[in-house]
């Protein structure tokens, strides 16, 4: 009795698995691609300036480099609507809990760009008493943009890399 049922459900599961594969192939992949494609050209960065690298963000958002043409706005609005956190440089001991708070408040899916030597390893300030040596201890990072400060072009390249990553994201959730 029990064995028969198991056999039956086993066959059923195989069937379900097959259908799933077919559906995945026919609908899932295009859906995932479509959803991620939609996300990738409408990135909303949080306006959280952490240190001097923000000057180059200002330049990147300015009229010469114009990051809007890559589909990222110069951020304004609530951080609940944002999906990109650009950490612009040094994160100090005072800012670190706030950075975590900001990250936690953002809705999924969300991505993080670590900009500048400071946010990657502490940079010039490796021996300062008030500076975090790299932000990946507290939040996950998707793209690192090295430099002190990175030129605006370098930042834009980081943005494009992130878009490439989103395009290739293996799941519908964008991660």
């Amino acid at each position: 009795m029990v064995v028969a049922q198991q056999q039956k459900s086993g066959a059923f599961q195989v069937l379900v698995g097959k259908i799933d594969d077919v559906l995945q192939y026919a609908i899932g992949d295009p859906m995932r691609y479509l959803a991620n494609w939609g996300r990738l050209y409408s990135l909303w960065p949080v306006h959280l300036e952490t240190a001097c690298c923000s000057v180059e963000i200002g330049a990147a958002a300015g009229s010469r480099f114009d990051m809007e043409r890559f589909g990222a706005l110069e951020a304004f609005g609530s951080l609940r609507q944002c999906d990109l956190l650009i950490v612009m440089g040094t994160v100090t001991r005072k800012l670190a809990p706030r950075l975590k708070l900001v990250y936690d408040q953002m809705a999924e899916p969300k991505w993080v760009i670590a900009m500048g030597a400071c946010s990657i390893t502490g940079g010039l300030y490796f021996d300062s008493y008030n500076v975090l040596r790299g932000i990946d201890d507290i939040i996950p990072v998707d793209v690192y943009v090295p430099g002190c400060p990175p030129r605006a072009e370098a930042f834009l390249q980081g943005l494009v890399l992130l878009q490439e990553k989103i395009r290739r994201a293996p799941s519908l959730s964008g991660r």
Binding site: T92, L95, Y125, S128
Partner: peptide, 8 residues
């Protein structure tokens, strides 16, 4: 202030 105090 002090969010960017880096101990220069």
């Amino acid at each position: 202030a002090g969010y960017v105090h880096r101990g220069e």
